[in-house]
Amino acid sequence: MIIGVGIDVCDVSRFAETIERRPGLITRLFTPAEAEKSTASLAARFAAKEALAKALGAPSGMIWTDAEVITDGEGRPSFKIIGTVAARAEQLGVGTIHLSISHDAGIASAMVVCEQ
């Protein structure tokens, strides 16, 4: 059973400008491993985290770094969740989180499906 669905898009150049103005956002939004990625990849990860928050009902108090976008050996993305995000997923009965991310033509996008 589907618990929630979320989608988000992020303009990569606008995201880059925001990070340039407020570099502290990197540590607030991303884990150290994520922070090493390119700007386009960071924008896609930001969109993924926004989509996940929407799929989980967008509750307040979730910590951005409690959800990390990781990829397997074939490049398939997924989430590693801990803390506040894992607690919310457990509260809703989420057993599986499906993630699709992309970035092309200056736009990063992500879609998340949370399933029981």
Rank of each mutant, 00 (worst) to 15 (best):
G57P: 14
T96Q: 15
S78V: 10
G75L: 07
A105W: 06
F15E: 00
A47C: 07
A58Q: 14
G75A: 06
E20N: 10
A44K: 01
H103E: 08
G6D: 07
A44Q: 02
P32N: 07
D11I: 10
D66L: 12
A58D: 14
G95H: 02
A55F: 06
D11N: 15
S38C: 10
A40H: 09
F30E: 03
A47P: 03
A40Q: 11
E17L: 12
A40T: 10
A58K: 15
S109Q: 05
A53G: 15
T31I: 11
G57K: 13
T27I: 08
P77Y: 01
C114H: 05
E34R: 02
L92V: 11
T39G: 09
V113N: 03
I101M: 04
D72I: 10
A55L: 12
T31G: 08
A48Q: 01
G106A: 10
D104F: 03
L29H: 08
D104Y: 03
G75S: 06
A58G: 09
T27F: 08
T71S: 14
V5K: 06
E36M: 13
K80D: 12
I63V: 15
C114F: 07
G24F: 05
H98I: 09
V94G: 02
V12C: 02
A67S: 15
T84E: 04
T39A: 08
V113W: 02
G24N: 11
A33C: 09
R88I: 12
V113I: 15
R88M: 13
I7F: 08
M62I: 15
F30L: 07
T84P: 06
R88F: 11
F30P: 04
I63Y: 04
V113Q: 03
R14N: 12
V94W: 01
A108Q: 01
A16E: 04
R14E: 12
C114M: 12
I82S: 15
D72Y: 05
D8A: 06
I26E: 05
V9M: 05
M62E: 07
T65G: 03
Q116E: 15
A108I: 04
H103I: 05
E90L: 09
